[in-house]
Lab assay of single mutants.
Amino acid sequence: AGLEKQLAIELKVKQGAENMIQTYSNGSTKDRKLLLTAQQMLQDSKTKIDIIRMQLRRALQ
């Protein structure tokens, strides 16, 4: 149950990062740093999601 909860949280983080990227990508240059931060968050989240999914698969075997 813990892994499913972690996965749900990470999927929400990923969605939030995608929303932030959309918001900041057509903003001013001061938003550039926020855009880069959001892109890093998205990448980190995708990595965590992959790891959690692997752990889930392993647990189900």
Rank of each mutant, 00 (worst) to 15 (best):
Q6G: 07
G27W: 02
L34S: 04
K14P: 02
S45N: 00
M41Y: 01
L56D: 03
Y24T: 13
I49K: 03
E18C: 02
M54Q: 14
T47H: 09
A17I: 12
N19Q: 12
I51Y: 10
A17C: 07
R58M: 05
I52G: 02
E4Q: 10
S45I: 15
L36M: 09
M20I: 03
K12I: 02
L56E: 10
M20Y: 03
R53P: 00
S25E: 10
S25H: 11
Q61L: 15
Q6D: 06
R58Q: 06
Q40G: 03
R32P: 07
R58E: 07
Q22P: 07
I9D: 12
V13S: 08
I49L: 10
N26H: 12
T47Y: 05
M20K: 10
E18A: 05
K5D: 08
R58N: 11
Q39W: 12
A17Y: 08
A8T: 04
L34C: 04
K48Q: 01
A8W: 03
T47C: 06
K48N: 06
G27R: 11
L35M: 06
G16F: 10
L35D: 00
L7E: 13
Q55I: 03
Q39N: 03
R53C: 07
I51R: 15
E10C: 05
I51M: 12
K12L: 01
S45M: 15
K30E: 02
T47V: 07
D31F: 15
L3P: 01
V13Q: 13
K48T: 02
L3N: 12
A17W: 13
R57L: 04
M41P: 00
L7Y: 09
Q40V: 03
A59G: 11
A8F: 03
L11S: 12
D50A: 14
L60R: 14
G16E: 14
R57V: 05
Q6H: 05
M20G: 04
I9A: 13
T47I: 09
I52A: 04
E18Q: 08
I9E: 15
N19I: 08
G2Q: 13
M41Q: 09
Y24S: 14
K12M: 05
L35G: 01
K12E: 11
S25D: 11
L7N: 11
L35N: 00
K48Y: 01
Q43M: 11
I49Q: 00
Q43P: 00
A1V: 08
L36I: 11
R57C: 01
D44T: 14
K14C: 04
T37A: 12
K46R: 07
L34I: 06
A1N: 09
V13I: 09
K14G: 04
K33V: 00
L34A: 06
D31E: 09
L3Q: 14
R58K: 12
Q55E: 04
M54V: 08
A38F: 12
I9L: 12
Q6A: 13
L42Q: 00
Q43W: 07
A1K: 14
L36Q: 12
I52P: 01
R53M: 11
L56P: 08
K48S: 00
N26Q: 07
M20V: 05
R53W: 14
L11K: 15
A1F: 10
K12C: 10
L60G: 13
K14Q: 05
S28A: 11
E4A: 09
T37M: 12
D31Q: 14
M20T: 05
K33E: 04
K5M: 05
A59V: 11
K48W: 03
K30I: 07
R32K: 15
K14Y: 08
M54G: 14
R53L: 04
Q22N: 09
R32T: 12
L60Y: 15
E4Y: 08
D31K: 15
D31R: 15
R57W: 12
T29H: 13
I51F: 08
L56C: 12
K12Y: 03
R57S: 07
A59L: 11
K48E: 00
Q55F: 10
Q43C: 02
S25A: 11
S25Q: 11
R53H: 01
Q55W: 15
L34V: 05
L42M: 05
E10I: 05
L35C: 01
M20E: 07
Q15W: 00
Q6E: 11
I52S: 02
G27Q: 07
A1T: 13
Q6F: 08
